[in-house]
Design a protein around this nucleic acid. Structure first.
Lengths: 337, 337
DNA sequence: TTGAAAGCGCTAACAT
DNA sequence: ATGTTAGCGCTTTCAA
């Protein structure tokens, strides 16, 4: 392995001068610089980043802990974060928790041992119990996509998921729907359901618990099954005219089930989802949904961390709640009759 | 910051002993070990991984360069790789190229400077010109998901994409289809198209170039547009009865377009895709496709690298071609009449 | 079994 | 503008 000392000897200077050239410091004379660069080229020298990290105390990488990247929501967030980091010369150490709290803890333990300059944590379920630890690592930490009970001891950049549910509910209310069925991944999305119910409650309509169908994951298949159940449970006299799905993926399955029951979307049943996944716009009919500003979230969170590093102090506790937005498409309409 | 020396003093031993305890070496007496562990707990000591890396020359992280993780194909591969690495105590440094060759080069440059113990590279387009460099980094390198012209100078674990196309084509031939239309992201998937054509050529049917519709990306929308074009260009006398799509996403759009044209899948037109994405099985009708063994690929590639690290020598050049498999579902059937 | 010494390759003062 | 001197915190010889 060719080291800085090798280069220095070859160029007839000291390590320090080589270092100055490598780091692009302006204090090196043009001719020394040329000599050093020649030596670097001849020897094929490349600086050892680990040694630099030990000397500077900075690794130029940030850790990102996410539940999974199989879910497009997270993979998009990861991609945005990675791009932003790269623009600032930082690298991304990615760790997934996959619903495994123990695994999450291990990741936290290693990443915090100075192998990253800052830590971003997305999602909540697997990690919420470890939140108290996060503050003690002495490095900038931020949370994002924190749907349930964001802690007030750390900076968190997340989305107003309650509002997302509320907006979906209000949209249905404004169309004139009186009876709501919710199909949601629970408990993960209970805040969204709460928001939808609040919209109805505002108008004096109490949504009862038996209108909420819990499913274990956010897939079209689970949505389909639950919707079949929900529709069959329906009393014909007072039919459900609106279904709120806690994600677009679920909503896709719900629309399927509605059709399967010989009903039409939106003429017989309106369906509204949350997230605005790519397929939503191209579904049949195009799905009305509430778009979650995930890119914005990724940007804000990354910015927070980068600033924390630059100012050499952990960002102070704060809660940034980004607003979702309704996208009215063709899957929702006023109730018939 | 509390260092190993602090712990050593507190416990009344030397750094070396502390190190032995931390690394779990068996040579430490029970009582010294207890003293040291007490000191570690009291001081809240945690080892500095960067310093360890400098001393050992190993970082316990491997770099993975992928085109994007927005594409589920890659995100699934990344997730499998990450899981496998974690099981072996390794971390994942993730870098995306996003179709930017320059960016790819930068990533290569930094990652190779001893910040990773090995390098895995997926995809091809953005990086193919840099392949010659890969061998010179002195660290284990492997390629995966290399669809076009895998180099013979490096170990590569990829899928037999030509066979995937061939299997799709042969399936259609076996059903009795005589005329094929292909809708493919080109040039990325030209090997797949070639495979499909080979299946027809085997039976003496030459597929002409004007039956291939090139689209710029693998989305249902592009597939939809192209299929509309393809179907309208059709001479009624000699109608196309089979469409080969180079990915499932495209195939979904194709089925859409077929229906839009008042035709039925598979009665009037058979549609076959490649990849077996989750939606394929739940499409209407369920999509016949060729499943790509991406998990296997991720496993083999990771294993190759881990072995390379363990044996302290770069894995030797090799080509592992994993076989795809046809999944016959309801979107394909014998041609009418 | 434990201790002492010598690096790993680099950066950051300070001195020249 | 360049050289000198100390480390960064750990691991790894080699002695004791």
């Amino acid at each position: 392995m060719v080291t800085m000392l090798d280069v220095a000897r070859r160029a007839g200077v000291t390590k320090q001068t080589v270092s100055n050239v490598v780091r692009g410091r302006a204090i090196v004379s043009a001719e020394t610089k040329a000599k050093v660069e020649a030596a670097i080229a001849e020897l094929g020298y490349t600086p050892n980043l680990v040694a630099r990290s030990l000397a500077t105390g900075t690794t130029m990488t940030i850790g990102f802990i996410v539940p999974t990247i199989a879910n497009p929501f997270y993979s998009e967030v990861v991609e945005v974060v990675e791009t932003l980091l790269e623009e600032h010369g930082y690298h991304l150490l990615l760790a997934t928790t996959r619903g495994d709290g123990e695994r999450a803890r291990r990741h936290l333990a290693t990443l915090s041992n100075r192998s990253v300059d800052a830590l971003l944590v997305a999602g909540d379920f697997d990690l919420s119990e470890h939140v108290p630890l996060l503050g003690e690592y002495g490095l900038p930490v931020a949370l994002c996509a924190w749907e349930i009970d964001p802690p007030d001891t750390l900076p968190v950049v997340t989305i107003d998921y309650e509002k997302a549910g509320y907006l979906a509910g209000r949209h249905l209310r404004e169309l004139g729907h009186q009876r709501l069925v919710s199909i949601a991944e629970l408990p993960a999305h209970r805040v969204r359901v709460g928001g939808a119910h609040r919209a109805f409650a505002e108008d004096g309509i109490v949504v009862t618990d038996d209108s909420v169908f819990a499913i274990p994951d956010s897939t079209p298949e689970s949505g389909y099954e639950a919707a079949l159940l929900a529709l069959s449970a329906d009393r014909t006299a007072d039919r459900t005219t609106a279904v709120f799905a806690s994600t677009d993926a679920i909503a896709l399955g719900v629309m399927e089930a509605v059709r399967h029951n010989g009903l039409r979307v939106p003429e017989d049943v309106s369906v509204v989802g949350i997230d605005d996944i790519p397929q939503a716009a191209h579904a049949h009919p195009p799905l009305t949904t509430v778009a979650l500003p995930k890119r914005r979230m990724a940007q804000e969170a990354t910015g927070l961390l980068l600033r924390g590093i630059a100012e050499n102090q952990p960002p102070s506790p704060s809660l940034t709640l980004l607003s979702p937005e309704v996208l009215v498409r063709a899957s929702s309409a006023p109730p018939a009759g």
